[in-house]
Write a protein that binds this DNA or RNA. Structure first.
Lengths: 211, 211
DNA sequence: TACTGTGAACCTATTCACAGCA
DNA sequence: TGCTGTGAATAGGTTCACAGTA
């Protein structure tokens, strides 16, 4: 946190991808050429990113995977596995319920500690290994449980309202599964993972490469 | 398709977001300042993007929402609602099953027409309003059903294998819900929507804005 | 030899600033 | 007046090319 230079946005996103890649990479060493093959990112740019992350440990035959992974983690300010960051799920419909049950953050520092839904019967019918609350309790539970992040999986027409309440309750980041574009206060980050937006991005990308 | 200039990647992504915003916007007119408020994107940049999309219909008191939306759609090469594009879901675990049941592409040109899982009991136990197949049928069903896009929701350790088979079967775009970074052939686009990657991106973004 | 690390060149994207217009 | 549209200025990102190294 202290040594952090400003890593530009574009580099940050590539480094986060690299971190994911390294986390599941089954080898001891890796070169920029191998990373290029796996990610499609130019190898010179990969080396620049790694250099931006402050890692100088590459030797002439590649990077040591564990060292590189740790350097990237530190440069991005990602928590260690034992520095738990608490999350909640807002919206326990089909998608929200599935996300809460399918162990999406297993083996990561993120931990889901609460679920919310405005329909009381959802919170009563479902079960999880963390408590489920009616949405009315959000403003109380979120600060109390030190929840910093939320997964938003409500219906589109409730999305902005819920985002407002999450932000007001102190949530600092929202993973947005809805199709709604969220307006949030400064200091709150949104990452859009709507499948429809993703597909539209894919279609647009394919069009423009097919000239 | 014919008139398409190369819209740069960054602009394309913002325009796709703008398209989503306009699709649910409940007004007749909109200005670049309002769009800035809702998306956080600088208003001058929004006007540049719109201009890049080839739309010159703005009058002194804003853009007509329907016209702008249609222009953005056309510029990105997105299909009209009646030009259906066929998709499949690969992986019918909790998440895949939820995605298939929760009407994620309702009111969009995308239509899910098949589901695949390597576990026969998943394809037999679940039901949907489209057929479910054992993964062994992928190579036959995908070309036959003219499937262009896939939602990948298998376990991480099967992700690369399934991506290979999807690409070999002719799929041109993959919405990747797994934590695995996918290596795909040229001409295949991947959009990563892993919740863990999304959260890591959020944490990294928050760090670097808190200097 | 096969890689990393990096300055310099190049290219792309963003912001500024203002003319034009309803 | 309050907006759009856009050339010019600036900032930022990417690629090149090569010295340095195990």
């Amino acid at each position: 946190m202290a040594d952090m230079q400003k890593i530009p946005e574009a580099s940050r996103r590539r480094l986060a991808l690299l971190f994911a890649l390294l986390s599941s990479y089954g080898g001891d060493k890796i070169t920029s050429i191998q990373i290029q093959r796996m990610t499609g990112i130019d190898r010179a740019l990969i080396r620049k990113d790694i250099s931006l992350a402050g890692f100088k440990g590459g030797v002439s035959n590649g990077y040591k995977v564990q060292d590189l992974r740790e350097a990237v983690r530190a440069a991005l300010g990602l928590p260690l596995p034992d520095q738990k960051r608490f999350c909640c799920i807002a919206g326990l419909g089909k998608l929200g319920a599935a996300l809460m049950q399918c162990g999406i953050f297993d083996e990561s520092p993120f931990k889901i500690v609460a679920g919310f839904d405005s329909r009381v019967n959802r919170t009563e019918v479902l079960s999880a290994d963390f408590p489920l609350y009616p949405a009315a309790k959000m403003e109380a539970v979120i600060p109390e449980s030190k929840i910093d992040f939320a997964i938003l999986a409500v219906e589109d027409d409730q999305a902005q309202l819920m985002a407002d309440r999450l932000a007001k309750s102190g949530v600092k980041g929202i993973v947005n599964f809805t199709g709604q574009v969220l307006e949030v206060p400064e200091g709150v980050a949104v990452e859009n993972v709507s499948p429809l937006l993703a597909l539209n991005n894919i279609v647009a990308a394919l069009q423009s490469s097919a000239s």
